[in-house]
Design a protein around this nucleic acid. Structure first.
Lengths: 186, 186
DNA sequence: AACGATACGGAGCACTGTTCCGCTTTGTCA
DNA sequence: TGACAAAGCGGAACAGTGCTCCGTATCGTT
């Protein structure tokens, strides 16, 4: 059995995951390793030790983000003033996460089978969370009922496609529109 | 009206197109500029003057290859011993060309409209050439009749997908099989 | 406290895209 | 033909990047 990991190693890994996620959102998944290292406040060697290839890092960030996103759902629901506010904040996190996700798809041209399993994991983990946020907001009468979580997630995902091509295209603006349309009415 | 191009400039452009095509086949469309320049026996500055961006170069090579491929059809038919030999050699050229084509698709993530028109050009120009080779071989009784050119081109194109991923995957071997199957029988 | 084992940092190397400018070749015009 | 702009060429030089390697620092254990 392998010896337990050193405390600083675990700490660095967490820091890296968080920093890389931020950098990916800001500069895309092709951001220079140096930039990620700087953001995390570690040396490049540290990154390469934890994540030998870029794909390793992206995958790890992906899983980490799925987890964070999943945990944020209930947390926001108990923190925010209204269910719809929680939903909005959650979707904000979700959009950040999609950047990594789309970058991942690009970084995985070869191993598309591994990607499929990650995608399944993503749906299983996040679908219920999104569902409970929707339910809460619907029960509170803040949005219309009957919106299916997978539908919404899929739609938001699609709105986020191709964001790099055109700096004038801001998915968040459209998503905001979508959410406004969700508000109960008619 | 712009002054006529200098003789050495046109010569260099042709040399470059031919050299780049070779290098693309050997090293992919992401081959270093230096490598292409060396293969063509010119300086890097020359490449950048003729083709400011990599996409420009790839597109130019693409058109050049389509043209060469189209002209090679009739030429092979009159040079080779049999129609089927001409067909085989032509398909060999065609496969080389597909490398550029697939690389092009990758290099054109953004401008997909331009890509579509190039693809149409490709079909219009090469379909009839392939058709006449097939007809000649069929008439000579060297292959079975009834194979549609677009079908064959499409099939070969698909066999060439994903060749970089796996060094063990050699599309030409499969294509040879396909051609053997084409030989008249039954 | 002492001492391996483990992990860290970042200088250094290799390779790449891209620019820029002195030099060469070409075409033209007297 | 010879001279002379203009057009074109080459490749050194710069900047940015991935990745390695090893001296140093930190950790956990005894």
């Amino acid at each position: 059995m392998p010896p337990r990991k050193r405390a600083d190693a675990v700490r660095n890994e967490q820091t890296l995951l968080a920093a890389a996620a931020e950098v990916f959102v800001r500069s895309g998944v092709d951001a220079p390793i140096r930039e990620i290292a700087a953001a995390a406040g570690v040396g490049m060697g540290t990154i390469y030790r934890h994540f030998p290839t870029r794909a390793d890092l992206v995958v790890a960030v992906y899983r980490h983000q799925v987890e964070a996103c999943a945990e944020a759902g209930p947390a926001l629901l108990s923190t925010e003033d209204s269910a719809v506010a929680a939903l909005r904040k959650w979707i904000d996190l979700f959009v950040d996460f999609l950047v990594t996700k789309h970058g991942l798809a690009g970084a995985m041209q070869s191993d598309s089978s591994g990607f499929a399993s990650l995608h399944a994991y993503f749906l299983d983990r996040l679908g219920p969370v999104c569902g409970s946020l929707l339910d809460a907001a619907a029960e509170a009468g803040e949005i219309r009922a009957g919106v299916r979580p997978f539908e919404l997630m899929r739609g938001i995902g699609n709105l986020c496609i191709g964001r790099d091509d055109d700096p004038c295209y801001d998915p968040r603006r459209l998503i905001a529109l979508l959410l406004d349309g969700l508000s109960v009415q008619q």
